[in-house]
Write a protein that binds this DNA or RNA. Structure first.
Lengths: 151, 151
DNA sequence: GCGGTTAGTTTCTTCAAGGAACCATCTACG
DNA sequence: CGTAGATGGTTCCTTGAAGAAACTAACCGC
């Protein structure tokens, strides 16, 4: 059977998952984000099937999360880059890092560190309220119907 | 072929995806988070195959993201609840909401609104640095090797 | 003309997703 | 005691996707 699509659900989580919810996609964004932008590089680094990689890249370009750029004319060669839309999706990766460091790193500690440009420190993201600036985690919110409820 | 597992990669993003990266799993967490905790409720609300739902629930319980709780003795009946580990994973959903509201809501607007307990306002999450408290998005960080690099 | 580089495409096999039916356990009721 | 209902899965079958490996195409250098 064909896999269920989430794009028609009246839920931003489902719609986001419709774009990025296939397991390889976040890892592709991660690699492009750190500068691994060419097909064979991605294939090697991820250990992914060439067929699946090609399919995922095509999907992500179609969703305007990545763009396919020609970097030489002769011969014509292509690499992939994040769009603005795609860069914002990478915020998701930072939250995954926080959770992953806390729950999956074990005694070895985190495999990758992140240094914040502004303060120069090794840091993590915290979720804060866009209105008052206080901590805002999943346990700190009430859920209400919005204007886009009926889709 | 069997799907590739990400749990052995020296990357917190990959390891997190190993736990929660299957497309239905975040939606299951979402539903349990808002109080849809029983099997048939979940199956109805999600429109998921009973077989796949049973498999996912078993996986998420095994990963200690959900727990299976008996709510009546006779007959013995079970519901699912978030663990502390699972609640923290729901932060991921808030970031998906933010991205989804911005890029997938269209003219109808966001389907669901979130009110922050602390300030009582309809709000979104912002990613901020755990050290200095300033904005910390994916474009604001440098990536460095950590102690858990070699896994 | 051949080998190398790069970016896919095609073929084949195996396994997972999904739908539908079925099963198990317990209770209430006539 | 038999039947129906509620709840939480399990089993069976079909179809499509994931993955491995080989192949293709376009261009360049020698």
């Amino acid at each position: 059977m064909q896999r269920t699509h989430f794009g028609e659900m009246a839920c931003s989580i489902a719609r986001t998952l419709d774009v990025i919810g296939e397991p390889w996609s976040p890892l592709i964004l991660r690699d492009v984000y750190v500068g691994i932008t060419r097909f064979d590089q991605l294939q090697q680094e991820l250990g992914i099937s060439r067929k699946v990689l090609a399919e995922r890249l095509k999907w992500l370009v179609g969703q305007e999360v990545l763009e396919r750029k020609q970097y030489t004319d002769r011969p014509p060669r292509f690499e992939y880059a994040l769009t603005a839309k795609g860069r914002e999706l990478c915020d998701l990766l930072l939250v995954m890092v926080r959770w992953g460091d806390r729950f999956t790193a074990g005694e070895a500690g985190p495999p990758v560190l992140y240094r914040h440009h502004a303060c120069g420190e090794i840091s993590h993201v915290e979720l804060r309220c866009s209105v008052c600036g206080e901590r805002m985690n999943a346990t700190d919110v009430d859920v209400l119907p919005g204007p886009g409820q009926r889709a």
